[in-house]
């Protein structure tokens, strides 16, 4: 407590001794407007195509769009392409992930489901299993068209490890949740979500340019990033 008081006192003294004090709220100050999560339908196609273009530009793969009925088949096709034998799948999304998990199992794959673990040993064991997955599948909360970014929030059934540790990541995003830019995505996400979940903006596969500025993909996080756009049934 002592240190806090001391630092704050020096900050206060410094501000009061300074030339002028900034007004409390500057003209640009904005209160978070509450925007609908759903993007207007007219823009949707344009936003999807911009998202796809930007995703490819940062080394991601746009794997097209799917209807709810065709989703499982398309995910299996992507798993084939990636060569994934072990697939970790996250839940807590807008669609039921269980039919997808079942279809993946039927196709002969080992499927890791994420959820609450009984104890510390089980928790660690699940993280170890996720680490050995060839592919992870999660639904993104929303996406950003101007940068090809996927916005993923962490929940018990959709842990951060999923989007970080496996070799490849497939993110599914609903077409009506693709926002124009970061500002809109943050508004759509809302202070409530950010206050209660770890959130990651993911733009392309993990990369580095630390050796002579030469870009290498897959330094720590996923080496491949695939994104699939899901068109809701009412469209």
């Amino acid at each position: 407590m002592g240190a806090f008081v001391r630092v704050l006192a020096s900050v206060k003294t410094a501000l009061e001794g300074g030339a002028h004090r900034e007004p409390n709220a500057h003209p640009g100050a904005r209160v978070m407007p509450s925007a609908p999560v759903v993007a207007p339908a007219a823009n949707r196609a344009a936003l999807v195509s911009s998202f796809a273009r930007e995703l490819e530009a940062v080394g991601g793969h746009f794997t097209g769009s799917a209807t709810p009925e065709g989703l499982s088949a398309q995910i299996i096709e992507i798993s084939d392409r990636v060569g994934a034998l072990t697939v970790a799948i996250g839940g807590d999304g807008s669609f039921d992930s269980e039919p997808v998990a079942g279809a993946l199992e039927q196709s002969g794959r080992d499927v890791i489901r994420c959820g609450v673990t009984a104890d510390e040993a089980a928790r660690r064991a699940l993280i170890e299993r996720i680490a050995r997955a060839d592919l992870a599948i999660v639904e993104a909360q929303c996406a950003i068209a101007s940068t090809g970014t996927l916005v993923v929030t962490a929940t018990p059934a959709r842990p951060s490890a999923l989007t970080l540790i496996p070799q490849a990541l497939l993110a599914i995003v609903r077409a009506d949740r693709i926002r124009a830019d970061a500002a809109e995505a943050i508004v759509a996400l809302g202070a409530e979500t950010i206050a209660n979940h770890r959130v990651a903006f993911i733009t392309g596969p993990s990369r580095t340019a630390d050796i002579e500025k030469l870009i290498v993909v897959g330094v720590h996080g996923p080496k491949q990033l695939h994104a699939l756009v899901l068109w809701p049934a009412d469209d």
Binding site: I144, T147, A200, F201, T203, G221
Partner: peptide, 11 residues
């Protein structure tokens, strides 16, 4: 345009 990861850590 944006870095690969932007991490929000709250709790």
């Amino acid at each position: 345009k944006i870095t690969t990861y932007t991490n929000f850590i709250t709790c």
